[in-house]
């Protein structure tokens, strides 16, 4: 068990927590945060796995992936929050309606 195994295991924990949150939490902001958990989990896994190189320098490719991933996640999060906000301002709700029929028009 090396330090990096901790990163990887921690990443897996974060990912699973995020998955559960995205699936189950009904507050929309919770869902957005949960998705960020999942992202961070993957980034931790990537960083952990990047350090399996025999040389002291870690593999740069996963690091680049993390940097790209972060930007993409930021973009997704921003859009998610913007939609949540607009949705709240239109309907006053903070949850997806489970009991309403899909695609119904008023």
């Amino acid at each position: 068990m090396t330090t990096y195994d901790v990163y990887v295991a921690g990443g897996a924990v974060l990912f699973a927590l995020g998955t559960y949150g995205l699936l189950e939490r009904s507050h929309l902001v919770h869902k957005v945060i949960a998705a960020n958990f999942m992202g961070s989990g993957i980034f931790l896994v990537l960083i952990g796995l990047a350090n399996r190189t025999p040389t002291p320098e870690p593999d740069p490719v996963p690091q680049a992936m993390v940097l790209t991933g972060i930007v993409v996640t930021v973009a997704m999060t921003a859009l998610g929050l913007a939609i949540v906000k607009r949705y709240f301002s239109e309907t006053g709700r903070t949850t997806l309606d489970a009991d309403e029929k899909p695609g119904e028009r008023r």
């Binding site: 897996a12 699973a16 998955t19 040389t55 320098e57």
Partner: peptide, 26 residues
């Protein structure tokens, strides 16, 4: 919860199966 835990277990199993060192594209 069970689904998330299953994902967790599968990821751990997958990572555990890896060799200790790998060069990748570094």
């Amino acid at each position: 919860l069970a689904a998330s835990l299953a994902v967790f277990a599968l990821v751990l199993r997958a990572v555990h199966a890896l060799p200790d060192t790998a060069t990748g594209l570094s």
